[in-house]
Design a protein around this nucleic acid. Structure first.
Length: 344
RNA sequence: GGGUCGGUACUCAAGCGGUCAACGAGGGCAGACUGUAAAUCUGCUGGCAUCAGCCUACGUGGGUUCAAAUCCCUCCCGGCCCA
C-alpha cells in the first residue's frame, strides 16, 4: 500500500498512482478527522470520491497517532484524547468514533483502534495495551455491526491488530483474543517502532505463524525492501510503509541491483539506496536506474534530478516519489511472481 | 585634500584584551528516516594529525602587553560627508 495519509500520496496525483500500478492506498482516520472532519467527509461523499481514487483503500484507525503524537494525548479505557497538532483543540477518538470516521471515509478496509507502544515499555504495560486492544477490537466490531448503514462504501471490512510488543506469549494471547472475534483480516502492529532488527524478525515470524492463513495477514508500517521479502516468506500478504515516499522527498532513491527478476530478490544486495543530492551525481548523464520504467528513469538523467534537488524545485520530489513508488510496486510484483513460480 | 565609518573563514555577519580556530545564517560535504505533526532532522565544514595536540589565521607592516580579531601607529582598499 502506498501511503496517502491526508487523502493524497504526497506530491503525486491519482493518475500517477494508476500509471505506476499502485493497487491500494492507505489513508488515516485521525488526520482526516482533524481536517476536514467527519461531517465534511460525509458531505464530500467519502474519500474515494473526494480524491478521485476508484481503487481499494485501507484506513488506519488513528491508533498509530496515539503512539507518534504521544506527548499530546491521554489514553483511558474509553478513548484517547488528543490535542490537535494543528490548533491545540481537543480531539477525542474512541474505538466507536474511529469506526464512525472510517465509515465516513468509506475505506474498503478499516483498522481497529489499537494501543501502540514503544518496544522498551515494561512487560506489564505491553500486556495491558494488548488486552485493551482486544477489547477495543470488539467495540469496533460491535459498533460496525449496529451501524452498517452509515458507511459511505458497502461491505467495509474490519481488520484486527495483534499487539504484545516483543513478547511471544503476549503475541499469542493477542492472536487468540482477536481471532475469537472473527474479524475479516489480521495485522501485526507494534513493530518497526524502534525495536532491534532481531526482535522485529523474530516476533513477526512467530506471530505470522499463529495468524489464520485463510485470512489476509498484514504487517503494519514495514518495511525496507529486504524486510518485506522476509515477511512474505513468513506468510504475510499486505504492507504499508512511508519509506518509499518520505525517502524520495529527502533525496534517497532506490536502485535495482540488476535486471529485475524473482531470482534477483534472493541476492543479498538486490538493490541499493543512493542519495541523489550527493556531489558524485552532479555530472552523470545516466538514468538513476536503467532497470526502472518510471518517468524519471525514462526521461531524465541523474544530473538533472540532482540539480532539481539542489535548486529545491518541487518537481524533484514528484519525480523522486514516483520513482520510489514504482520501485516498491515492482518489488511487490516481482515477489508475487516469485511466490507463484516457487522461486521465493 | 579634510573628516568620518568600515575591512573577520566560500558568502553574509557577530565578537571589540584572555573562556576564539572565532556566535549565528546561507552555501558546501555527509548521514538518518519503517501503520507520515517530516519538501524534515542530525553531524561536519582553516591545515596537519599517532585524534593527545600542533601549526597558520580576523586587510598590510610594526608596536604595547604575560596575553591582541579586540588597544596604539603606518600603509593599502571601500562607503558616506565636506571642499
Amino acid at each position: 500500500m502506498t501511503i496517502a495519509t491526508k487523502g493524497a500520496v504526497k506530491s503525486l496525483d491519482v493518475s500517477d498512482l494508476e500509471r505506476n500500478r499502485v493497487p491500494i492506498i492507505l489513508s488515516n482516520t485521525y488526520h482526516l478527522l482533524v481536517r476536514p472532519g467527519l461531517e465534511a467527509m460525509r458531505r464530500r461523499g467519502g474519500l474515494h470520491k473526494f480524491m478521485g481514487w476508484d481503487g481499494p483503500m485501507l484506513t488506519d484507525s488513528g491508533g498509530y497517532q496515539v503512539f507518534s503524537l504521544g506527548k499530546m494525548r491521554k489514553i483511558t479505557e474509553q478513548s484517547v484524547t488528543f490535542r490537535s497538532h494543528i490548533d491545540g483543540a481537543i480531539v477525542e477518538l474512541s474505538p466507536e468514533q474511529s469506526i464512525e470516521m472510517q465509515q465516513a471515509i468509506g475505506s474498503d478496509i478499516m483498522m481497529q483502534m489499537d494501543v501502540v507502544l514503544a518496544p522498551d515499555v515494561p512487560r506489564i504495560i505491553a500486556r495491558d495495551a494488548m488486552e485493551q486492544s482486544i477489547r477495543w477490537a470488539k467495540r469496533c466490531k460491535d459498533y460496525l455491526n449496529l451501524n452498517r448503514e452509515q458507511s459511505m462504501t458497502k461491505d467495509q471490512k474490519l481488520f484486527g491488530i495483534v499487539q504484545g510488543g516483543i513478547h511471544e506469549d503476549l503475541r499469542a494471547m493477542s492472536v487468540k483474543g482477536l481471532t475469537d472475534l472473527e474479524l475479516d483480516g489480521y495485522a501485526i502492529g507494534g513493530l518497526s517502532v524502534g525495536e532491534n532488527p532481531e526482535d522485529n524478525l523474530r516476533v513477526a515470524a512467530y506471530t505470522a505463524d499463529l495468524m489464520p492463513s485463510d485470512k489476509v495477514r498484514y504487517f503494519m508500517g514495514g518495511g525496507k525492501p529486504e524486510e518485506i521479502v522476509a515477511y512474505v516468506k513468513m506468510g504475510i500478504d499486505m504492507f504499508d510503509c512511508v519509506i518509499p515516499t518520505r525517502h524520495a522527498r529527502h533525496g534517497s532513491l532506490f536502485v535495482w541491483g540488476g535486471e529485475v527478476t524473482p531470482e534477483l530478490l534472493n541476492e543479498p544486495d538486490f538493490y541499493k539506496k543512493i542519495i541523489i543530492q550527493n556531489a558524485e551525481f552532479e555530472d552523470s548523464d545516466e538514468p538513476v536506474d536503467p532497470n526502472c520504467d518510471c518517468t524519471l528513469c525514462t526521461n531524465h538523467s541523474k544530473a538533472y534530478i540532482h540539480h532539481l534537488f539542489d535548486m529545491k524545485e518541487p518537481l524533484a520530489e514528484r519525480l523522486a516519489t514516483e520513482h520510489n513508488v514504482r520501485f516498491y510496486m515492482k518489488l511487490m510484483e516481482t515477489i508475487r511472481e516469485g511466490v507463484e513460480n516457487d522461486v521465493i
